[in-house]
Deep mutational scan, measured.
Amino acid sequence: AQASVVANQLIPINTYLTLVMMRSEVVTPVGIPAEDIPRLVSMQVNRAVPLGTTLMPDMVKGYA
């Protein structure tokens, strides 16, 4: 199964992502692939992302 990117903490709206904020986990539904974690660093979330939430492409500015 493919691992997705999951929030490792509460990520406030407009926060620039860093490695410590994200982890990879096999979840349903599938979100942003874990292999894209390096690409996500320094990208901004466009909403608050609670701890344990799967990151979806529409949550990250400029990802989709």
Results as ranks from 00 to 15, higher is better:
residue 1 A to V: 11
residue 1 A to W: 05
residue 1 A to K: 03
residue 1 A to G: 15
residue 1 A to D: 15
residue 1 A to I: 14
residue 1 A to F: 09
residue 2 Q to G: 14
residue 2 Q to C: 05
residue 2 Q to W: 08
residue 2 Q to I: 09
residue 2 Q to L: 10
residue 2 Q to N: 13
residue 2 Q to M: 14
residue 2 Q to V: 11
residue 3 A to L: 12
residue 3 A to R: 04
residue 3 A to H: 10
residue 4 S to N: 01
residue 4 S to C: 04
residue 4 S to L: 02
residue 4 S to Q: 02
residue 5 V to Q: 01
residue 5 V to P: 02
residue 5 V to H: 01
residue 5 V to M: 02
residue 5 V to D: 01
residue 5 V to F: 01
residue 5 V to G: 02
residue 6 V to Q: 05
residue 6 V to F: 02
residue 6 V to H: 02
residue 7 A to R: 01
residue 7 A to P: 02
residue 7 A to N: 01
residue 8 N to K: 12
residue 8 N to R: 08
residue 8 N to F: 07
residue 9 Q to I: 14
residue 9 Q to P: 00
residue 10 L to P: 14
residue 10 L to R: 06
residue 10 L to C: 14
residue 11 I to H: 00
residue 11 I to A: 01
residue 11 I to C: 02
residue 11 I to K: 00
residue 11 I to E: 00
residue 11 I to T: 01
residue 12 P to F: 09
residue 12 P to L: 14
residue 12 P to M: 10
residue 12 P to N: 08
residue 12 P to T: 14
residue 12 P to I: 04
residue 13 I to L: 14
residue 13 I to D: 09
residue 13 I to S: 12
residue 13 I to W: 10
residue 13 I to E: 15
residue 13 I to H: 14
residue 14 N to F: 11
residue 15 T to L: 03
residue 15 T to N: 05
residue 15 T to P: 00
residue 15 T to E: 15
residue 16 Y to H: 14
residue 16 Y to C: 04
residue 16 Y to I: 06
residue 16 Y to L: 12
residue 16 Y to V: 14
residue 16 Y to E: 09
residue 16 Y to W: 12
residue 17 L to K: 00
residue 17 L to A: 00
residue 17 L to V: 04
residue 17 L to D: 00
residue 17 L to E: 00
residue 17 L to W: 01
residue 18 T to E: 11
residue 18 T to R: 05
residue 18 T to D: 05
residue 19 L to Y: 12
residue 19 L to C: 05
residue 19 L to R: 06
residue 19 L to S: 06
residue 19 L to P: 13
residue 19 L to N: 06
residue 19 L to H: 12
residue 20 V to T: 14
residue 20 V to K: 14
residue 20 V to M: 12
residue 21 M to Q: 09
residue 22 M to P: 00
residue 22 M to S: 00
residue 22 M to T: 02
residue 23 R to W: 04
residue 23 R to E: 03
residue 23 R to S: 05
residue 23 R to V: 05
residue 23 R to L: 08
residue 23 R to D: 04
residue 24 S to D: 15
residue 24 S to Y: 05
residue 24 S to R: 07
residue 24 S to N: 13
residue 25 E to R: 04
residue 25 E to I: 04
residue 25 E to G: 09
residue 26 V to F: 14
residue 26 V to C: 04
residue 26 V to L: 14
residue 27 V to P: 02
residue 27 V to F: 02
residue 27 V to N: 03
residue 27 V to W: 03
residue 27 V to T: 13
residue 27 V to A: 07
residue 27 V to Y: 02
residue 28 T to L: 09
residue 28 T to S: 10
residue 28 T to V: 12
residue 29 P to L: 09
residue 29 P to K: 05
residue 29 P to R: 03
residue 30 V to Y: 15
residue 30 V to A: 08
residue 30 V to L: 11
residue 30 V to R: 03
residue 30 V to D: 15
residue 30 V to M: 09
residue 30 V to K: 04
residue 31 G to R: 03
residue 31 G to H: 02
residue 31 G to D: 01
residue 31 G to A: 05
residue 31 G to Q: 03
residue 31 G to K: 00
residue 32 I to G: 00
residue 32 I to E: 00
residue 32 I to M: 04
residue 33 P to A: 09
residue 33 P to E: 06
residue 33 P to C: 04
residue 33 P to D: 12
residue 33 P to F: 15
residue 34 A to R: 04
residue 34 A to P: 09
residue 34 A to L: 05
residue 34 A to Y: 12
residue 34 A to S: 15
residue 35 E to H: 12
residue 35 E to N: 06
residue 35 E to W: 08
residue 35 E to K: 04
residue 35 E to Q: 09
residue 35 E to P: 10
residue 36 D to K: 07
residue 36 D to Q: 09
residue 36 D to F: 13
residue 36 D to N: 12
residue 36 D to M: 09
residue 36 D to G: 06
residue 36 D to P: 00
residue 37 I to E: 03
residue 37 I to A: 11
residue 37 I to G: 05
residue 38 P to K: 10
residue 38 P to E: 12
residue 38 P to W: 08
residue 38 P to I: 05
residue 38 P to Q: 14
residue 38 P to R: 05
residue 39 R to V: 05
residue 39 R to Q: 11
residue 39 R to K: 11
residue 40 L to Q: 01
residue 40 L to K: 00
residue 40 L to C: 03
residue 40 L to M: 11
residue 40 L to V: 10
residue 41 V to F: 11
residue 41 V to D: 05
residue 41 V to W: 04
residue 41 V to E: 13
residue 41 V to K: 05
residue 42 S to Y: 11
residue 42 S to W: 06
residue 42 S to D: 07
residue 43 M to V: 05
residue 43 M to R: 05
residue 43 M to N: 06
residue 43 M to G: 05
residue 43 M to K: 06
residue 43 M to Q: 12
residue 43 M to A: 08
residue 44 Q to P: 05
residue 44 Q to K: 07
residue 44 Q to I: 13
residue 44 Q to N: 07
residue 44 Q to V: 11
residue 45 V to F: 01
residue 45 V to N: 05
residue 45 V to P: 03
residue 45 V to K: 00
residue 45 V to H: 00
residue 45 V to D: 00
residue 46 N to P: 03
residue 46 N to A: 11
residue 46 N to V: 10
residue 47 R to H: 08
residue 48 A to M: 11
residue 48 A to S: 14
residue 48 A to F: 13
residue 49 V to N: 01
residue 49 V to S: 02
residue 49 V to Y: 02
residue 49 V to C: 04
residue 49 V to P: 01
residue 49 V to R: 03
residue 50 P to L: 08
residue 50 P to N: 08
residue 50 P to G: 07
residue 50 P to E: 15
residue 50 P to D: 11
residue 50 P to F: 14
residue 50 P to W: 07
residue 50 P to R: 09
residue 51 L to N: 09
residue 51 L to K: 10
residue 51 L to F: 13
residue 51 L to A: 10
residue 51 L to Y: 10
residue 51 L to I: 13
residue 51 L to E: 13
residue 51 L to D: 11
residue 51 L to T: 08
residue 52 G to E: 10
residue 52 G to K: 06
residue 52 G to P: 00
residue 52 G to D: 15
residue 52 G to W: 07
residue 52 G to M: 08
residue 52 G to R: 07
residue 53 T to W: 15
residue 53 T to A: 12
residue 53 T to S: 13
residue 53 T to L: 08
residue 53 T to P: 01
residue 53 T to R: 12
residue 54 T to C: 03
residue 54 T to R: 07
residue 54 T to Q: 04
residue 54 T to E: 02
residue 54 T to Y: 02
residue 54 T to N: 02
residue 55 L to V: 11
residue 55 L to H: 01
residue 55 L to W: 01
residue 55 L to I: 13
residue 55 L to D: 01
residue 55 L to R: 00
residue 55 L to Y: 01
residue 56 M to S: 12
residue 56 M to R: 10
residue 56 M to C: 04
residue 56 M to W: 08
residue 56 M to Y: 07
residue 57 P to H: 10
residue 57 P to N: 06
residue 57 P to V: 06
residue 57 P to D: 09
residue 58 D to P: 09
residue 58 D to I: 12
residue 58 D to L: 08
residue 58 D to Q: 11
residue 58 D to W: 11
residue 58 D to G: 14
residue 59 M to A: 07
residue 59 M to D: 15
residue 59 M to T: 07
residue 59 M to Q: 07
residue 59 M to L: 05
residue 60 V to F: 06
residue 60 V to C: 02
residue 60 V to G: 01
residue 60 V to K: 01
residue 61 K to H: 10
residue 61 K to N: 12
residue 61 K to Q: 12
residue 61 K to W: 10
residue 61 K to V: 15
residue 61 K to I: 14
residue 62 G to D: 07
residue 63 Y to W: 13
residue 63 Y to A: 03
residue 63 Y to L: 04
residue 64 A to Q: 14
residue 64 A to H: 11
residue 64 A to S: 12
residue 64 A to I: 12
residue 64 A to K: 06
